[in-house]
Write a protein that binds this DNA or RNA. Structure first.
Lengths: 239, 239
DNA sequence: GCAAAAGTGTTAGGCTTACACCCATGC
DNA sequence: GCATGGGTGTAAGCCTAACACTTTTGC
């Protein structure tokens, strides 16, 4: 086997979630292609690299953040997950970025399937300016409810990522990764309402959160609004 | 890239669960190697094959069952998941079974990592006689609590498979796949007690199961035991 | 004072848990 | 009858959901 720096038929794609203005956002690259088409941030995996480290590397490239929450949510390996059209579009530019990975074509000049591992990550929207890399025309935040035209099965991957986030947000109390250091109870509630796309009654929501004993109440937040000032909270330091 | 029938650096390994005599069992191959070492049933993935189809193919090879419950539970991609010793042991025989996949060695003669996708499957223990394939010395059921010496990170994979089964057995009501067509409430209870490794009070367990409205009560089962004959149940036909 | 939003309290209902009890079966 | 295990009933306790109410703030 010819040695390549990267594993040839395996990639890793990231659904990087952020929360802003009551919208759940994710980072997408607009690709430098004839057609307007978008992709999840991703890439090939180095031969000597743990897969989770590859995810961290890709996430750092795009967000500038070293320590963020990330979790694998599934593999995507349908034989036809790369449509003929997408293959034509993409195979030209991929070689520029990954010259060691030859185009995925067999000896009959047919495309070969590439399997992708999906990771999702949670970041503080305010702290992250999405970074474009070589083959991006641009890289920015997009509302998950208004996804543009996406390459391969990346739309399916984004939705699966959201589904797994929904299963885990409450169970693993991940909300801190999506909010600033300090936040109001209303912030948390709105995050929940956005992720699960349903209302949570404010009084019971607050009770549930406080009962968890994971929040530390700080000073009140005076905004000048003509209503009672809400408390700020932060996550209690880990015991 | 040289065309290979299989994807070179990606495999799929299966944790095939069965339930027998209050023990949770899984199928393992004893490998034809100098050392006594066992492996999860697995294999490479064909270029033109959906990954889920590869899992079904491998599961059919080993169990003779076409339609069984299966679910992906994660990828295993640590760079050093194949120890040097296991690599030495295995690289000789793998070439016999997969001549198209060249040994995973780079040009410096160092081993290259192979990533594995984990699937678990649930089968009726009574109906499955594990089938060995070429590089197996034998293939049989083993108690998950008494796993033998296993190759690569297969022990870790087996335990992760159990962990995901625990998360899903109750949520997705998968127990029917692990029991015969008809069963007593005690059978179900013992299955739960085995999977979760804790007791379930019989009266409340029965109530919970019956409240789910998924079981159909059949005739009593007279075994000759000097106690009340238990009802048999089966899953209600899907609506 | 008043409107707006934050925060607290109180009650009803549902689900789980624990305990007690009755029923069928073979000896 | 009686021991054994199967099956049912009931009440306590916990968690959640729904409603009502009080508090703080700026105008």
């Amino acid at each position: 086997m010819k040695f390549s720096k990267h594993i040839a038929q395996l990639t890793l794609d990231c659904v990087i979630f952020g929360f802003h203005h009551k919208k759940l956002k994710l980072i997408l690259s607009k690709l430098k292609l004839a057609k307007e088409i978008y992709a999840l941030p991703g890439g090939f995996i180095l031969q000597e690299e743990d897969i989770e480290d590859a995810a961290k590397r890709i996430l750092f490239e795009r967000t500038g953040i070293q320590d963020l929450y990330l979790e694998e949510f599934g593999t995507f390996g349908r034989a036809n997950r790369i449509s003929d059209e997408d293959f034509q579009l993409f195979s030209g530019i991929a070689g520029d970025l990954y010259p060691d990975v030859e185009p995925p074509i067999n000896e009959n000049n047919q495309k070969m399937r590439i399997v992708s591992i999906g990771y999702y990550a949670l970041v503080d929207f305010e702290k992250v300016k999405p970074q474009k890399i070589d083959l991006d025309e641009s890289c920015d935040w997009y509302d998950i409810k208004e996804l543009p035209n996406m390459i391969f099965d990346h739309q399916e991957m984004a939705h699966k990522g959201l589904q797994v986030l929904r299963e885990n947000l409450d169970k693993k109390l991940l909300f801190n990764n999506l909010l600033p250091e300090t936040f109001t109870m209303k912030n948390v509630q709105e995050l929940y309402e956005t992720v699960y796309d349903k209302p949570f009654p404010a009084n019971n929501f607050q009770k549930k959160m406080l009962d968890l004993q994971i929040l530390e109440r700080l000073d009140k937040k005076y905004t000048g609004a003509k209503s009672k000032a809400p408390y700020l909270y932060r996550l209690k330091p880990r015991t």
